[in-house]
């Protein structure tokens, strides 16, 4: 019995030390990892839709708790004013979730630009939502509160030929982001001004 307890205590000690060490390493690298993920996954899209801003939106970011989720917002400075925020939302595409970053002008609630971040759409068809601007550029300048739909659903967004479901997914993501925006606008304003 005593032997059993000894074995148990040794393994327990090993696990505790290991767990403690990993917690230290994790807290030491967490911030950098987050930044790296932003830089390589969302970064290129954010840079693209916020072209011309005079700050680095990846650094100038904040978080707001929305229900049980925490959402990241990226601030863009245009003409010396902090007047654009970008954030990600998801729509249902053909091969899974499509991540879409939407940048909104806080002064008049219009879309500054949208861009696809992650997707698993068909290469050559749905993937053009990310690689070509035909679809995403249609959103630029419109009000965030419009009921975005593709032409096949009596909307006014021309879908990518051969990828109606993907286009619908992108529209859906923008509609979702309009909901987030409406829900959190007051909090966003507070954070941006702070």
């Amino acid at each position: 019995m005593r032997e059993m307890i000894r074995l148990f205590v040794v393994v327990l000690l090993f696990s505790c030390v290991s767990g403690g060490l990993l917690a230290v390493v994790r807290s030491g690298t967490q911030e950098r990892i987050e930044y790296q993920q932003l830089k390589f996954v969302k970064g290129p899209t954010i840079k693209q839709i916020m072209e011309g801003c005079s700050n680095d939106p990846l650094i100038d970011r904040f978080k707001i708790i929305d229900g049980d989720k925490e959402r990241s917002f990226f601030v863009g400075v245009f003409d010396g004013k902090r007047n654009v925020v970008a954030f990600e939302s998801f729509g249902k595409g053909f091969g899974g979730k499509i991540g879409v970053i939407v940048a909104v002008n806080l002064e008049n609630d219009t879309i500054v630009g949208i861009g696809v971040t992650t997707h698993s759409e068909t290469p050559g068809l749905g993937s053009r939502a990310k690689s070509e601007p035909d679809l995403s550029s249609q959103f630029t300048g419109l009000s965030i509160n419009e009921p975005f739909k593709v032409t096949a659903d009596d909307g006014k967004i021309d879908s990518i030929s051969g990828a109606t479901i993907t286009s619908r997914g992108v529209c859906g993501a923008v509609v979702v982001s309009a909901g987030i925006y409406a829900r959190l606008k007051t909090k966003i304003m507070e954070k941006v001004k702070a």
Partner: peptide, 27 residues
């Protein structure tokens, strides 16, 4: 009697360290 379990804990710890460091510096 418990050497394999202990070895795996040691190895797994270092692997996780490598994983975190690699994420932070060579994403």
């Amino acid at each position: 009697q418990v050497r394999i379990a202990c070895f795996i804990v040691v190895i797994a710890t270092f692997v996780t360290v490598v994983e975190l460091v690699m994420q932070a510096f060579a994403y």
